[in-house]
Design a binder for these strands. Structure first.
Lengths: 167, 167
DNA sequence: AATAACTTTCATTTATTTTTGAAAGTTTAA
DNA sequence: TTAAACTTTCAAAAATAAATGAAAGTTATT
C-alpha cells in the first residue's frame, strides 16, 4: 500500500469511528487529517484534501476548537490561519469525555434524578419504576465519574498497576 | 410529577442518551420501557406505549435481542410473545461494550494496523504518519481491552478498591 | 478609508437514517 | 389442512442530519 492510499484509508476509518462515537463524520475526518499532518494545515488544504465546501470546513473546524482538540496557529508573515490537532491521545480522550459528559450525560442525570424522585404511593408498578430509575441514576453517575477521573487514573501509580493487571 | 409523566420523561431521556451512544432512538426507548416494566411486555404494548408501527417494533426488538439485552418470554396459555430487558446494569454495560467493540472497534483496529504498516521510506511526512497511526493503534487497542475486561474489573477486589478511591 | 484576503453564517439543497404499513411468512389449534 | 393469530420483511415515505455556496462579516494592508 502506498502512502496516499494509506492516508485516505486512515481518514475514512477515523471518520467512521468518530461518527459512531458521537462526533460527526467530517469533524472526525478533519481531526484525522490534522493528526497525521507534520505541520499546521490551512482551511484551504482541508477543503482540498477532503473535498468539502468552505462552509463545512469552517463550521467543523470551529466545532473542533470548541471541543478543545484542535488549535489555531498563526504563521508569521502569513495572513491565513492554520490548524493543528491535539496529539496527546490521553489528553484527547479526556477532552472528548469531558465534553460529552457535559453535553449529554449531565443533563440526562438531572432528569433521571427527577423522575426517580416521584413518590411511589402504593402500586407495585410505581415502586418498581422508582427502584429501577434509582439504580440507573447511580449507575450512570458512577460511569460518568469514571470518565471524569480518567486523567488522575492514568497518571497515578495505582491506576497504572491496575491497567497492567487488566491488560 | 405524576407517574405517567415521569415514565414518559424517562423513556424520552433514555432514548436520547441511547441515540447519542450509537443505539438508535427507538431501540433505546423500547429498552427503557422494558427496564421499568414490572412484567413482560408484548409487542402490542410496545407499539401502543411508544406510538410506533408494528414493523418498527418488530425490527428493534429483534435488534435488542441480537445485542443480547432483551429476552423473549413465553407465557403459558398465551399465544403472543413477551419481552423483558436485561436488568443487571453491569451485565448490560458489558454486553453493549462487547457488541460495539465487535462491530466498530475491531474492524477499525484492523485498518489502523494495516495503514500503520506501510514502509515509510524517506519522507518526514510519511514517517510522521506511521508514527501517529501506530500510537493511535496502540491507544485504541488499550481502550478496547479496558472495555473487554470490565467484568473482571468490576468483580475483583482490587478493582473495587480503585473504584472506591476514584469515587 | 478603500481594497484585498480571508472567515463565518445560514437558508436551501442533498444525503443518510429511520419509520411505516401492507404483503408474505410462521406457528398453533381445531 | 384450514384458518386464525401473530411476526417478519422490505420497498417506499418521512424525518433528521449534514453539506453547500453565496452573501455578510472581519481583519490587515496600502
Amino acid at each position: 500500500m502506498e502512502f496516499k492510499e494509506a492516508k485516505n484509508k486512515f481518514v475514512q476509518t477515523w471518520g467512521a469511528l468518530g461518527s459512531q462515537w458521537g462526533i460527526n463524520k467530517t469533524m472526525a475526518q478533519i481531526h484525522a487529517l490534522l493528526m497525521i499532518s507534520n505541520e499546521p494545515v490551512s482551511m484551504e488544504d482541508v477543503m482540498e484534501e477532503l473535498q468539502i465546501s468552505r462552509g463545512n470546513a469552517s463550521m467543523n473546524l470551529r466545532a473542533l476548537m470548541d471541543w478543545g482538540i484542535v488549535y489555531k496557529e498563526y504563521k508569521s508573515g502569513e495572513r491565513r490561519e492554520f490548524f493543528t490537532a491535539e496529539k496527546d491521545l490521553d489528553e484527547l480522550a479526556v477532552k472528548i469525555a469531558r465534553e460529552r459528559s457535559k453535553r449529554e450525560i449531565k443533563p440526562a442525570l438531572k432528569i433521571l434524578k427527577e423522575v426517580s424522585s416521584i413518590d411511589s404511593k402504593d402500586s407495585a408498578e410505581e415502586k418498581h419504576f422508582v427502584e429501577q430509575t434509582t439504580k440507573l441514576y447511580d449507575f450512570v453517575l458512577k460511569a460518568d465519574n469514571m470518565l471524569d477521573k480518567m486523567t488522575e487514573f492514568n497518571e497515578n501509580w495505582l491506576g497504572r498497576l491496575v491497567l497492567k493487571i487488566m491488560k
